[in-house]
């Protein structure tokens, strides 16, 4: 469930990144790469889980599924927080610097 949640987040971010091309002001590429990286890592985790549990891997308990989904949502939230921090620090449009110091980054 964590893998599926992260893959869904990665797909949504990639679509949003593609829609905003050629501009990259919102740094959506960074966010989508973060989620894709995590998705690949959880995919490896899933392979090892399948090797260990066999077919039982595809039939988790409802409580386990809910817990994993809750974890997936938390992971996506953390990814969004990291992206927001990067966006505010890099400030590609210079609006934050302008608002705080009254001058643009250019």
């Amino acid at each position: 469930m964590t893998l599926l949640t992260t893959v869904a987040a990665a797909i949504i971010c990639t679509i949003l990144w593609y829609r905003n091309l050629p501009g990259n002001e919102m740094r959506l590429g960074t966010l989508s790469l973060m989620f894709w990286g995590a998705s690949v890592m959880w995919f490896v985790d899933a392979i090892f889980g399948y090797m260990e549990d066999g077919m039982a891997f595809f039939n988790p308990d409802l409580s386990d599924m809910l817990n994993e989904f809750y974890l997936g949502l938390s992971v996506v939230s953390l990814g969004l927080i990291i992206w927001l921090v990067i966006l505010l620090i890099k400030d590609p449009r210079g609006v934050l610097k302008k608002a705080l110091f009254g001058k643009s980054s250019k």
């Binding site: 960074t30 973060m34 990286g37 890592m41 992971v75 953390l78 990291i82």
Partner: peptide
């Protein structure tokens, strides 16, 4: 770097 750092942080 983005894939590795992002993935590692979330993991």
């Amino acid at each position: 770097n983005n894939m590795l750092w992002g993935g590692s942080a979330l993991l």
